[in-house]
Design a protein around this nucleic acid. Structure first.
Lengths: 292, 292
DNA sequence: CTAATGTATATTTAAAAAATATACTCACTG
DNA sequence: CAGTGAGTATATTTTTTAAATATACATTAG
């Protein structure tokens, strides 16, 4: 049995007649008669009960017709589905994102869904290094990361540049009555820093800002988790310096946010992907949304 | 997209390599490369991400592979199923049966299932005329009926010949202290008879037995339902004459069964089917079981 | 009994798939 | 760092397979 024969059988069963089926299949009647016979022969069952020019499905024929209907429906659906994936209007999109960039991701997913409602998302969270590993393994197609990061292997598009801000417990800030804070003022305070678990990250950038001024920060805690750091600040354990957008997901009641006075430590966020590799149409469309 | 191409794709995805897949498909590598390319072209998606000699499924490719796996599994199952139906080891068998022959049917179904456990049954009940109509409509393949019946259009096999017996209320029978009863003795009793709703049936045969002796039976009730008749006998409304096997399904506590003394009204039970029509292998096997 | 409609068979023709020959590409190795 | 091997791609020829043509056969309706 081959599928072409099955398709012929399906059409004959639908039309109830070989001649009519042949017309529908854009072919002559004799080859169709033969194909049907060959199929019956191969399966070892009569599929039609013929008397004269009346054809009636046998029991086996009825079963085969049911199954064939299902099979061709599935094949048809599959074609459509895969084509849609190809055109980027369907399918799923795997994106990794560092926690401090969640706000960018969420905003763009909302926008993307208004244009491509059939696309679903698979999201993972991790630090920049972990995400690049996931890119290489092709677990994700796109990653939204924060610089600095070794990105030679990746194509990238910069989605935001933003300043780092100092976050102080509200009580501490009241003593100053200031609207901004300098690096020097921060030196004397206990400092809590985001520290990536792997690779060179933002941590080093902040240290450099102090070192440039001959200062040595008083780092008392490092953590890869922004929520934890901000929780500690809230408990008046110390202050921190983080990208502004990292605050968006944190409900900050007892925190005072101050821009840095004499230094602009900047953070770049990028969306990155593997260069020279197949990128799904939907991923391309997702990137393009950032570009506009 | 055609299914041959899909099959090629499926094999390539399974083997992870075109050359290896070509070997498995008993063909050379170049046509396989081309077929894959044609499929990708037709669907408008890259299915594999090629770098050098490494091939990796794209997102669309992964989806297609999943679907293809399911499709080919279904096709394979279908082949097996239809072949099994063809050989009569699987499928379902539709049989109609008159109520008074239930015992024959049940006995043979039990036997049949020990040999062909995969065959399922679809059973209907009706009088002989109704069953022949169902045969013509092909709602059932086989019917077990009781003669007399117009059976010119059908192939048949006689499964049993049995005598009619008289059934009396136990109390009435005690007066006689006999082990058999004559037609004449029955004439004076109120008679309850099975009467087929349609067509000529056993009813007429019984009437004839009386008429041959110049007697006129005292028929006070007709019903197509054996249970109802026997219920009425049990309530001492009257007596009845029925084929012996009709009693098997009835729980008879207050009934006396007596053979007919001076007449043998006989009933033939047959299994019948449409002549010159396709009969499923399983139906043929079912008939053969009666013949042995 | 004949015309019309549908199916089956045999043979020829055309289309499509596969083979052959060969070029190209990358990765590994000495 | 050229050479080799394993794999893929392209162009052309060959083979296979499916379809068309011609025609015979079968059944039903008028």
């Amino acid at each position: 049995m081959n599928v072409r024969q099955l398709h012929y059988f399906y059409t004959i069963a639908n039309e109830g007649q070989i001649t009519r089926a042949a017309k529908k299949l854009h072919m002559a009647q004799p080859p169709l008669s033969q194909a049907l016979k060959a199929l019956e022969n191969d399966l070892g069952v009569l599929l039609f009960d013929r008397h004269g020019r009346k054809m009636e499905l046998t029991k086996a024929g009825k079963v085969l017709f049911e199954r064939a209907t299902h099979i061709f429906q599935t094949i048809d659906d599959t074609k459509t589905e895969v084509k849609e994936i190809g055109h980027g209007v369907s399918g799923s999109l795997s994106i990794g994102c560092v926690k401090s960039c969640f706000s960018y991701l969420i905003r763009n997913i909302r926008l993307f869904r208004t244009v491509y409602p059939k696309i679903t998302f698979k999201l993972t969270e991790g630090d920049s290094f972990q995400l690049t590993e996931q890119l290489k393994k092709r677990d994700i197609e796109l990653a939204i990361v924060r610089l600095p990061l070794e990105i030679d292997d990746y194509a990238s598009y910069k989605i935001a540049t933003e300043k780092y801000v100092a976050v102080l417990p509200e009580k501490w800030a009241k003593k100053w009555h200031k609207t901004a804070i300098s690096i020097e003022e921060l030196t004397n305070m206990p400092l809590l820093l985001l520290h990536r678990m792997s690779g060179r990250g933002q941590y080093e950038v902040i240290i450099e800002a102090f070192q440039k001024r001959g200062l040595k920060p008083n780092i008392i805690c490092e953590s890869p988790n922004v929520d934890m750091i901000l929780g500690l600040v809230n408990e008046e354990i110390g202050v921190t310096i983080i990208p502004q957008s990292s605050l968006l997901t944190f409900h900050h009641s007892g925190l005072k946010i101050l821009p840095l006075l004499d230094a602009t430590i900047e953070s770049e966020s990028m969306i990155i992907w593997l260069e020279d590799r197949y990128l799904s149409k939907s991923a391309i469309q997702f990137i393009e949304m950032f570009e506009t």
